[in-house]
Design a protein around this nucleic acid. Structure first.
Length: 606
DNA sequence: CCAATCACGA
């Protein structure tokens, strides 16, 4: 009997070991098969097999299944399996949920799903761990939901994960991604240990995101003083700040700093450099960098940066050749590349080419046009004087036109003299978007063209009564001793007296040369008698006057405006370039204007 | 299964 019992146990052990070994072998087999799945059909096939061999409820296999499905841009497939009505929660674990969060946190437009499944996780009583929160916070950052982020942050503190540096850094990132959240980000940043570059990069990036580029640069200086070595992420953020401000000299310094510090030139960092040079007016340097980039590093982003750069400089044909070269190189253009290309056609009035590429985008590349693509086309047709075609185009659009498109059409109506139509469209627009300043400006301009001064005045009064806020025009200029910013009518500057004297002198010289003020461009809330004075205080005129005072004769003046340059300033700058014999390079919200000898590179088309 | 980058748009 004794002998028999012991044999039985041995037999059981033997059978058990065979069973687990074979299950483990099957598991391993599935994991390696999953690793090889590089298409959705292969994955669905394998899934069928998992069900057949009974591994569909194995947590490890399911986790791998999830990450593979996410890599194939099919996370919905995995979650439909994991969270199907037949699914049983006994195989749910933290690891599996984290993989789901990661997938959704990294997918655009599905950050909400990460939050949703996070609450599902909690409802099943599955405990989050320190890997959970970077994903959940990233999702909060993606939807810029400050209150949700604060709730999650509170939980992080209560669960004791707030000492983990990854969690901390992502929390700062979350705050820096929400409106009004940046102060919380700053506070957390100030309190946390800062010996690694990651948190510095996050905070610098937060400043750049909100247009606080000077704060970004000064934080970078603090980082250097603190003795923390910047990495390639940090340098990308600092270059973004330079790009935003049009600070070419600072950008050049950053490039030499990178070389001195031997910071690895990743693809992203090269792209950031190319973008910086293109947007800081040195498009040829951008092109040289692009040409020197190894083929393997040249991504769609690199090509797009160059195409966008050419577009902004009004070099539409160069943008088109780059696009064709990109195709030949076998790099797939995406929706953003096409926005760049269509913009290039727009800024160079290449109507035929624009139409052809728009159709090609849909038919040859299978890209579904976004509202921005339609916007490009509407603008392209309108500026070519084809208002009817533009209207028809808008009516044929499968998506609802946005205010940007309406404003484009309305401007075209005004230019082409379709004033009644323009008035009606503007009124509809104001009914939908009553707090948007430029809608009132459009209406006022239409009344001005109708010579209906009474209605124009009424519009101005309504604006004042409703308290419509204006985006203040500002102009930046980089000189040897730093970066200066001017706003319209600015008197805060230490040398403003000299600057205003110079503006007056410029005015006299321009009038002598035949310049006439274009008063229709004046801001609406300024008294009639002060129209001319107000135009002279537009920020770009202040910046140019300041530059004429502070820079040596004959040197090029480069300025950056946050809005589009107005017709009066455009005309004035042409005169100034001739009178003072200076090349003046203006970057406005849309593109570059190179003024030289009384002419502009945009050929007055912008 | 853990952190932060680049191209458009506004």
């Amino acid at each position: 009997m004794q002998h028999s019992a012991s044999s039985k146990i041995k037999l059981l052990r033997f059978l058990h070991s065979i069973f687990t070994t074979s299950e483990r072998a099957a598991e391993q087999n599935c994991l390696s098969l999953l690793q090889l799945c590089n298409s959705l059909p292969k994955l669905t096939q394998l899934h069928a097999r998992l069900v057949k061999v009974g591994l569909h409820a194995n947590p490890l296999v399911l986790t791998k299944f999830t990450s593979v499905s996410s890599d194939l841009n099919a996370i919905h497939y995995a979650s439909s399996v994991i969270f199907s009505p037949e699914a049983t929660p006994h195989y749910y674990d933290t690891f599996l949920f984290n993989t789901v969060f990661k997938a959704y946190a990294e997918t655009d437009n599905f950050k909400h799903s990460a939050i949703h499944y996070y609450s599902v996780m909690l409802s099943y009583g599955i405990r989050p761990n320190k890997y959970t929160y970077p994903f959940v916070l990233k999702a909060c950052a993606g939807i810029a939901d400050l209150r949700l982020g604060q709730t999650v942050h509170g939980l992080v503190v209560r669960l004791g994960f707030s000492y983990d540096t990854h969690v901390l850094n992502t929390t700062v990132h979350m705050y820096c991604s929400c409106k009004n959240g940046i102060v919380f980000g700053e506070k957390l940043f100030d309190e946390m240990p800062k010996c690694e570059p990651v948190c510095w990069s996050v905070m610098i990036g937060g400043y750049v995101r909100w247009g606080m580029s000077r704060e970004a640069v000064s934080l970078f200086r603090r980082m250097q003083i603190a003795g923390v070595k910047p990495d390639e992420f940090t340098m990308v953020m600092v270059l973004s700040a330079c790009t935003d401000m049009g600070a070419l000299e600072l950008g050049r310094w950053v490039e030499s700093y990178m070389e001195k510090e031997k910071i690895e030139k990743t693809s992203q960092l090269c792209n950031a450099l190319i973008d910086m040079y293109a947007k800081c007016a040195d498009i040829d340097k951008a092109l040289r960098l692009f040409r020197n980039m190894s083929e393997s590093k040249r991504t769609t982003v690199s090509w797009t940066s160059m195409i966008v750069g050419m577009a902004m400089h009004g070099r539409g044909l160069d943008a088109i050749s780059l696009f064709e070269e990109m195709r030949r190189a076998g790099v797939a253009p995406d929706d953003v590349a096409f926005i760049g290309l269509l913009n290039a056609c727009r800024h160079s009035a290449l109507v035929k080419e624009g139409k052809r590429y728009f159709d090609s985008m849909i038919n040859d590349f299978g890209i579904v046009p976004r509202i921005e693509h339609y916007g490009c086309m509407v603008d392209l047709l309108s500026r070519a004087g084809q208002v009817k075609e533009a209207m028809e185009f808008v009516h044929r659009m499968p998506i609802e036109p946005n205010p940007v498109i309406w404003r484009t059409l309305i401007t075209a109506c005004r230019v082409q003299g379709e004033l009644n139509l323009g008035e009606r469209m503007t009124k509809d627009l104001i009914a939908n978007e009553p707090m948007h300043e430029s809608n009132y400006v459009l209406l006022s301009n239409i009344y001005a063209k109708m010579l209906n001064w009474e209605m124009k005045t009424t519009v101005r009064e309504v604006m004042g009564k409703k308290g419509i806020s204006k985006v203040p025009g500002s102009t930046m200029i980089e000189l040897d001793d730093g970066i200066y910013e001017f706003v319209a009518g600015d008197k805060s500057h230490s040398q403003y007296k000299k600057t205003y004297d110079m503006v007056d002198e410029m005015e006299k010289e321009m009038k002598r040369a035949g310049y006439v003020t274009k008063t229709t461009e004046v801001l609406l809330d300024i008294d009639e008698e002060d129209k001319e004075g107000a135009l002279n205080r537009h920020s770009e005129k202040l910046a140019i006057a300041f530059a004429l005072l502070k820079t040596p004769r004959g040197t090029t003046i480069r300025i950056v405006k946050n809005l589009r340059v107005c017709a009066d300033c455009h005309s004035a700058t042409k005169f100034i370039s001739k009178i003072y014999n200076r090349e003046i390079v203006v970057r406005d919200r849309n593109r570059f204007h190179h003024f030289k000898d009384g002419l502009c590179s945009c050929k007055d088309f912008w």
